[in-house]
Design a protein around this nucleic acid. Sequence first.
DNA 1: TATTTGACCAAGA
DNA 2: ATCTTGGCCAAAT
Length: 104
Amino acid sequence: MASFSSRVLALCARVPSGRVTTYGAIASALKSKAFRAVGQALNSNTYDFVSGDCTVPCHRVVCSDGSLGGFAYGVKRKIALLEKEGVHVRNGKVVDFHKKLYRF
DNA sequence: TATTTGACCAAGA
DNA sequence: ATCTTGGCCAAAT
């Protein structure tokens, strides 16, 4: 059994492009309520930033209210990536967040 | 082993 | 609408 953080990363990788998910959704999918631990796992997982090619798309993970929450490389970077995938961000919040929310 | 911290969440003031 | 409080869990110190 992989560690909690590994499972979190695995679920992130499952989120398709143009979609977003929430920390809560991930935790719930893991049968856990460790919303906070999810964020920590992602923060530790410094993924490769090579010309937009990322091993784990952590930028698709946002807060339950649609706000971006945080990002290890800066929220600005996160927004840029989301926009590139078709997820528009307005004033720090995901547009049509509930529509693009991915469910496992 | 114990305490603190954190990319959170929901509810109340 | 913003701010505070309490609760939750895992990883770091």
